[in-house]
Simulated assay, not measured.
Amino acid sequence: MSLPVTIDVISDVVCPWCYVGRARLQKALEVAPELAVDIRWRPFQLDPTIPPEGKSRQAYLAGKFGDEERIRQMHEQLSTAGEADGIDFNFEAIEISPNTLNAHRVIRWAATAEPGVQDLLVGRLFALYFEEGANIGDPTVLIQAARDAGMDAAVVETLLATDADRAEVEQEIATAQQMGVTGVPCFLLEGRYAVVGAQEPASLADAIRQVAQAKADGKLEQGQN
């Protein structure tokens, strides 16, 4: 068994390519079962200016992209990509474009739960939004998603009603931006090698293999300050 490679996945749960990226990361690990990884989901907001109650999805897309034909083509491209990766995008079901700060707070708390819970939660939030059209800015939806992933829903409900970890999540997002992250998903391997975009599973597996080998050879430590 190789030394585990830490993968920080910088993403936003309203980013469709991040959903595709998660599916492709899972496939990459399936085709390279010899790889040991530690996956950590990190926050990013595609649009932090969306109010807490969210915006009309239709109005938001029209304001951002304008051309209905362009939006249709984007959705068609994503639906095709999603189908190949087992994702059933249902863009017509989405009524609200949410502010995702609270979702990222819950994802942060999930990191302290049992191994795998954080990834389960992220997957559930993606599915809720993109396949079921749920408003993942709604605390009730977030609490149920946390429960579905195996978290203590009562604790999540209590924390969501406060400002717990709000500043910490905002700082993480700012740090990602300072690092030069402008697009997501961004897979940060061992905190130093970035793979940007929803790469094909084979390419992603190859990148992880290379970093795993470098780590096993002690070459990563040589580059540390």
Rank of each mutant, 00 (worst) to 15 (best):
V156I: 15
I50G: 05
V37Q: 13
G223F: 00
E200A: 00
F65N: 03
R40W: 06
I94W: 02
L61D: 01
E172R: 09
L220F: 04
L101F: 14
S97A: 06
G123Q: 10
Q177P: 08
R70S: 03
Q199K: 07
Q199M: 13
A198R: 02
I7C: 15
A36K: 05
W41R: 04
L3W: 00
R22A: 10
G63F: 00
D38E: 12
T80A: 06
N225E: 10
N225P: 14
P16D: 09
A164T: 07
T6E: 10
D138T: 07
I39C: 11
E76S: 05
G191A: 14
E157H: 04
D138N: 14
A154N: 11
E221F: 01
V141T: 12
R108E: 09
F89A: 04
N225R: 05
L3I: 11
T140N: 11
E157G: 10
G82K: 05
A207C: 07
V155Q: 08
V169F: 13
A205S: 14
I39A: 10
N225T: 14
K55N: 10
K55G: 00
E53V: 04
A93G: 14
A110C: 08
Q210A: 15
R72G: 01
T49Q: 10
I173N: 02
E132Q: 12
P139T: 03
I71A: 01
C15G: 07
L25V: 08
A176H: 11
E200P: 10
R105P: 02
V196C: 13
V14H: 03
Q222F: 04
